[in-house]
Amino acid sequence: MLPAGSRLTHRDEFASVLRRGRRSGRPRLVVHLECRVEPTAPRAGLVVSKAVGGSVVRHRVSRRLRHLLAPRLNTLPAGARLVVRALPAASSASSAELAEDLDAGLGSALRKASGARRG
Rank of each mutant, 00 (worst) to 15 (best):
C35N: 11
P3Y: 05
F14G: 02
P42H: 02
R19N: 08
C35M: 12
A4L: 02
S16P: 05
H67K: 00
S62M: 14
A90Y: 02
H67R: 05
R85W: 00
A86V: 12
R64K: 00
S94V: 14
A89K: 14
S49I: 09
A86L: 12
G105H: 01
G79C: 13
A89Q: 14
V61D: 08
D103T: 09
H59M: 04
G25N: 13
V37I: 08
P77C: 10
L33G: 04
R111V: 10
L106V: 09
G21Y: 08
R63L: 06
R7Y: 02
A51H: 14
A113R: 13
A96G: 02
A109S: 13
R23K: 14
L46F: 06
G54N: 15
R11A: 09
R26G: 03
R20Y: 11
R64V: 04
R60K: 15
R43M: 09
L8H: 08
S95L: 13
A109E: 07
G115I: 00
R22K: 14
V56L: 13
V84L: 04
H10G: 11
L68T: 05
A89W: 10
L46T: 09
L98E: 06
A93W: 10
G45I: 05
H59P: 05
R19P: 07
A116E: 14
P27F: 09
A4Q: 02
A99Q: 15
R63Q: 12
L76H: 00
A109V: 04
R58H: 10
F14C: 06
G5R: 12
E97S: 15
R20G: 03
H67I: 06
S94F: 11
L76T: 02
V37W: 10
R43V: 03
A80I: 09
P27M: 01
A93F: 05
V48E: 02
L98I: 00
R72H: 06
G105T: 09
R66G: 04
L18C: 01
G53C: 10
V56C: 09
R19Q: 15
G79F: 12
A116P: 03
P39Q: 13
H67N: 05
L68P: 11
S92P: 01
R19V: 08
L110N: 13
L65K: 04
S92F: 07
V52G: 00
A70M: 11
L8I: 12
L8W: 12
G21E: 01
R28Y: 01
F14D: 06
P3S: 08
S49F: 10
R85V: 11
P77A: 08
E100R: 15
S16A: 13
V17Y: 04
T9E: 10
R22V: 00
S92G: 03
L102V: 12
L2E: 06
G119H: 07
L98N: 02
R85S: 08
R11Y: 12
G5H: 10
R63A: 13
R7S: 06
A41D: 07
V17F: 01
R20V: 08
A104H: 02
H67S: 09
R72I: 00
L102D: 14
L65D: 01
L87K: 03
V56S: 04
L33P: 02
G25K: 01
